[in-house]
Nucleic acid binder design. Structure first.
Lengths: 196, 196
DNA sequence: GACGATAAATAGGAATCCTATCTAAATAGG
DNA sequence: CCTATTTAGATAGGATTCCTATTTATCGTC
């Protein structure tokens, strides 16, 4: 797993932590603060400062003064950094290739079960990252009658199916805890109807 | 994931890599060579030397001269090291707790699918051989008619069920590639009978 | 305007990881 | 039998991640 991270990242000239930061930065215009990144990644604030310095040396990101807070710094990705993220994505990881060897039903089951396990980890507080549909304020499970595409994403305003559930969506915005609980309930109930 | 590794390892006074080495050493009498460890862990040989030195400083392992090869060193775990492994195991990781929130059928499905993905990674050469039943020379899939305990382990000479498939068995011994392929075929065929 | 809280940087240190190189022992060939 | 290659580990040197503790500057608040 770690080895896979390295293969993906190495091919783009950065290491896994740096690639993770770039992926977070990508797709959020206003940028992130150091604090936000450290919370999202689950590492200490000085560690993020270290990696930010490394990325700055490689000219993949920029630091901008926060107009609203003189202490804060807004980290934004620049075009070279975006290119690295694209390159990293094209080098589809070995895990992806391995998973695609499963048949479609198994892939869908695996995805749903992983979502379940990851959600549990998040609710336990064991991992900080929240980028899955089931914790997103745009997610509406089973909003449609169509069995092939029962879910709805209010961000792109489109229906989608179980097999397209996201684990790491760049447009994710965390919903309030009570909303999350309700969303999860609806997702679970209709996915595991009583009597199945 | 990495954070979880740290929690487990930290509680025992070692870090994840060191714990991984101890877990490998545990349960193999004759010990391992540095080379074998580096292959199994997927890191370079000097990295293993580093970690071995750290573990030796902590008096958790011992280096012994190999009687058959004057260049080689046999790394063996000593009692303090075994205690560390036990402690690490008791601190059940967050992932285990999260997975146990799934119902039994889902857990079994998840296990089987993970076995499948991991095996694929191994055959691709993306990760070193892991100590799973399906690559072990003692494993006989579907050797019994009993649907609850169809598999057989020749090491302990006992039948067991799908839900007890091992992902990291300490008694694992890698089977030859042709045997592995045949075992996997039998495991797959009976697990996914034609027409299911 | 002083005071506690907060954002980030800095200092110092430990550990993982790498590539390249070195030493010593095993093995192969003439 | 003696050299040449290969192989097992250890060393050297360097980059990076990651930590805790501390410092500096700024923000809010009383």
């Amino acid at each position: 797993m770690r080895a896979d991270d390295w293969v993906r990242a190495r091919s783009a000239g950065v290491n896994p932590t740096q690639l993770a930061i770039l992926r977070l930065l990508d797709g959020r215009g206003p940028g992130w603060t150091v604090k936000e990144l450290s919370l999202q990644l689950g590492v200490s604030q000085p560690t993020v400062t270290d990696s930010i310095l490394a990325l700055e040396r490689k000219a993949l990101i920029e630091k901008q003064a926060d107009p609203a807070d003189g202490r804060a710094v807004r980290i934004v990705i620049i075009s070279a950094g975006r290119a690295v993220v694209r390159a990293g994505e094209e080098t589809a990881g070995a895990v992806d290739r391995a998973a695609s060897a499963l048949d479609d039903d198994d892939q869908e089951q695996l995805l749903v079960q992983l979502v379940s396990v990851i959600r549990q980890l998040q609710e336990q507080g064991a991992i900080p990252i929240q980028r899955m549909c089931v914790s997103c304020r745009y997610f509406r499970p089973y909003a449609h009658a169509d069995a092939a595409q029962p879910h709805h994403c209010n961000f792109v305003d489109a229906a989608f199916g179980q097999q397209d559930l996201r684990i790491d969506c760049r447009d994710h915005e965390t919903a309030d805890p009570s909303v999350r609980a309700a969303t999860w309930g609806a997702f679970q109930k209709d996915h595991h109807p009583p009597g199945e």
